[in-house]
């Protein structure tokens, strides 16, 4: 069997284009709470773009250049909007019990995204090369040392932390976001709780 053919057939079957980028959604997708996810994604894009500028000029640039400081400010506030909308998205998905109907793995991938985002933000604080980094690194080292990982994940080692922050963790986030979105599209948007249109739930929809 040709491996390439197999992979292509699997992709076409599992991820059909019209599901990946649908132009129709069920009418119950009808609330502003559905926007928190896309706003989180938009914040991530802003973070990547401002981060790319900061990476191009290197870690000392923004301390000595007014333009650099402004790009850093964009990056700083995008972190705030990223977590702001992510947590609102989390609240919305929780109160919709969006793990129903075989979507539990997507809940798990969202929680993992939240955790990796926290780690990414943490390594960002450590990469600033200012008093904040110094204080966070020295205050945080005891926690990692107590858990036995301080030698391997050494938050005082700038080279290690900076590499994680600008390459590995963003790539991991992007991959996880891709997986998260793929699951949303392949499973479809979760149906309403006690849905009057669902055959097995319609019986007790009137309250």
């Amino acid at each position: 069997m040709n491996w390439t053919t197999r992979l292509r057939r699997w992709l076409v079957r599992e991820i059909p284009m019209e599901d990946l980028l649908p132009d129709r959604l069920p009418e119950y997708v009808h609330s502003y709470v559905y926007f928190f996810g896309v706003l989180t994604l938009a914040s991530f894009l802003t973070l990547v773009l401002s981060g790319i500028v900061l990476v191009i000029f290197g870690p000392t640039w923004w301390h000595i250049s007014a333009l650099g400081h402004f790009v850093n400010s964009v990056h700083f506030w995008a972190v705030q909007t990223f977590f702001f909308f992510m947590v609102l998205h989390l609240w919305a998905q929780f109160f919709m019990a969006a793990w129903r109907g075989g979507r539990a793995v997507n809940w798990v991938s969202g929680v993992v995204l939240f955790l990796v985002s926290i780690l990414t933000a943490f390594t960002g604080f450590l990469s600033q090369q200012n008093f904040d980094s110094q204080w966070v690194a020295l205050q945080g080292k005891d926690a990692f040392n107590a858990l036995g990982v301080g030698g391997f994940f050494n938050i005082l080692n700038f080279g290690q932390i900076y590499g994680l922050h600008i390459v590995l963790l963003p790539l991991l986030l992007a991959a996880l976001i891709g997986f998260h979105l793929y699951l949303v599209r392949s499973k479809g948007v979760v149906t309403p709780i006690d849905d009057p249109l669902a055959p097995n739930e319609g019986a007790h929809h009137d309250e």
Partner: peptide, 21 residues
């Protein structure tokens, strides 16, 4: 302020009437 703003935005998103599609 951020926490209060989050709660306010969440409540607004819940209650604001959504335009017909």
């Amino acid at each position: 302020a951020i926490v209060l703003l989050m709660i306010a935005v969440f409540v607004l998103a819940l209650v604001l009437p959504y335009p017909r599609r």
